[in-house]
Design a protein around this nucleic acid. Structure first.
Lengths: 178, 178
DNA sequence: CGGACACCTGTTATGATATAACTATAACCG
DNA sequence: CGGTTATAGTTATATCATAACAGGTGTCCG
């Protein structure tokens, strides 16, 4: 069907929240790691070996990944560390904003946007129940509304979460064929 | 200070998402349980002893409560059950809609609204980081927007949730004094 | 009534997620 | 270089959740 969006070569990181997984080449991953390193540098934070290793495991998939899955994958590669070390690395990556936590799955995924760090816009998360892929789309207008709703209730908001579970474009298309 | 909102006697359940805890008398609790029982009856579901006990523990506090905390409190009262039994009861209560799950805390709280079951409006959750109280306010317009944002990304939404962590009215007032 | 069926609970075991407390090492900076 | 702070190692444990199977209870219908 013509439903399939064939991404062009110039398809920027930001274009689709659900890029074709085929694009996740080793080269792409290296670039992603490079960007993360820069974020750490800009904030005068240390992008240590362990943090980089953990980040690479997270960034190597478009799906969300649990802490113990990261642990296992690092283990397979010969890096044996304790759970707590993974969690500490994750905390640092979260603080830097290069990964996000998916509350509804207790799992993590790499941030592939720049606008919420650069322009202060907050994203909402779209998590595919079939393939696990997670996408982010801008949700600043939604967060603004949430802030207003909280204010009406005399509630002082600090952290807001918006998560959606459903089917990503590819899995939606697959389901419609069936 | 005049900040303190003195709730009137006619202060309905629905009025404020953060009612005064003092109001949570034994009588109130009994009424809440009665309403839950009715929801089960209306849906031809069984409000069993265990489910009622679990619901009572959840409804007895305005804060969210974890499964193992429920387990412990029932244990103190002489009802010794396995974790799985608590979770099964929780599942039934969630299905019936008389409690909600707070994803960001892996905890549960009693629903004190009727409009989303009756009128199909979905609430957003406001969770106090200081006292643990959880309030619900209508968020149908927010969920509508989220649906639109998902649609733009060609994502098929199935489950959506919005959670806010911050300070409830009382804790906000307390913090401002300091 | 009593048997079939669906639903609920008990029992045991285990899996999955997350952190506490303390020690040791590495990086940073005056 | 030496003190301070941040990071990571080590060990142990807390917390959250479900699998698998056996036994019991309620309901409905012939």
């Amino acid at each position: 069907m013509s439903e399939t969006q064939a991404p062009t070569k110039s398809d920027a990181n930001q274009r689709s929240p659900f890029p074709n997984p085929d694009q996740q080449t080793a080269k792409k991953l290296a670039q992603t790691v490079e960007r993360a390193a820069k974020v750490f540098a800009d904030k005068s934070l240390r992008f240590t070996k362990l943090r980089q290793q953990v980040f690479e495991e997270i960034a190597a998939t478009h799906a969300s990944i649990g802490a113990y899955e990261i642990l296992a994958r690092l283990g397979d590669k010969g890096t044996r560390v304790a759970p707590i070390s993974i969690y500490r690395a994750i905390d640092a990556l979260l603080d830097a904003g290069v990964i996000h936590r998916l509350e509804s799955k207790n799992a993590f995924f790499a941030c592939r946007r720049t606008d919420h760090t650069v322009k202060g816009r907050r994203p909402i998360f779209l998590s595919c129940e079939k393939c696990g892929a997670v996408g982010e789309v801008d949700g600043q207008h939604i967060f603004d509304l949430i802030g207003e709703a909280a204010k009406e209730a005399k509630f002082t908001p600090r952290i807001k979460f918006v998560e959606v579970q459903g089917l990503c474009p590819r899995c939606t298309a697959a389901a419609e064929k069936a």
